[in-house]
């Protein structure tokens, strides 16, 4: 029996074997997976924006931002008994190509940079990634074997 937990935009969640975890339609958003290979638990967060300091109101959804989202996922996994965590990333695309447009248009790459910065602070290594490009991705993580399946509309499934 394999149950799949679904994570929405700005969502966050953890699973343990035999559950899998998945998020659909990552564009410029970044799907971050943290997992403990030996204990076979893992979690995923669907990040939209790089930095929570732009949140204009006091309360916000921590899963939305790279800094708060990665940290929250880390805390959740540690409290569930995870010890040596590794990371896998996917997403951070630039969906439309424009001339000009400034930082707004570069949001995908900026999300990836921000996630990596936060992972560095937490001393978590990025084991593999499938980021950039100009296409959407749907990802599914299996804590059983640590595989992250990255599906794109045009070229099928890539396992990282």
């Amino acid at each position: 029996m394999s149950e799949v937990k679904k994570i929405g935009i700005a969502g966050i969640g953890t699973v343990r074997v035999p559950q899998k975890i998945r998020t659909a339609g990552l564009g410029s958003c970044v799907g971050v997976v943290l997992f403990d290979e030996t204990r076979k638990i893992g979690g995923m967060v669907h990040i939209m924006l790089p930095d929570s300091s732009i949140a204009k109101n006091g309360e916000f959804n921590e899963g939305k931002f790279a800094d708060t989202g990665v940290r929250l996922l880390y805390k959740m996994l540690v409290s569930e008994g995870a010890r040596s965590l590794k990371a896998k990333l996917a997403g951070g695309a630039q969906m439309f190509q424009f001339s000009g447009g400034g930082d707004f248009m570069r949001i995908g790459p900026r999300n990836v940079e921000a996630v990596k910065l936060e992972l560095k602070t937490l001393k978590i290594n990025v084991q593999s990634e499938d980021t950039g490009g100009s296409y959407g991705r749907t990802i599914e993580f299996n804590p059983e074997n640590g595989e992250l399946h990255v599906k794109t509309a045009s070229s099928g499934i890539n396992i990282i």
Binding site: N57, A93, M95, F98, I107, R137, A153
Partner: peptide
């Protein structure tokens, strides 16, 4: 700008500004 791709991936782009708040 035109593209053919997953709806979620495309629409989230437009939600970027509003998602900050």
């Amino acid at each position: 700008a035109t593209t053919v791709d997953m709806a979620g991936a495309v629409l989230s782009w437009g939600l970027m500004e509003i998602s900050a708040v």
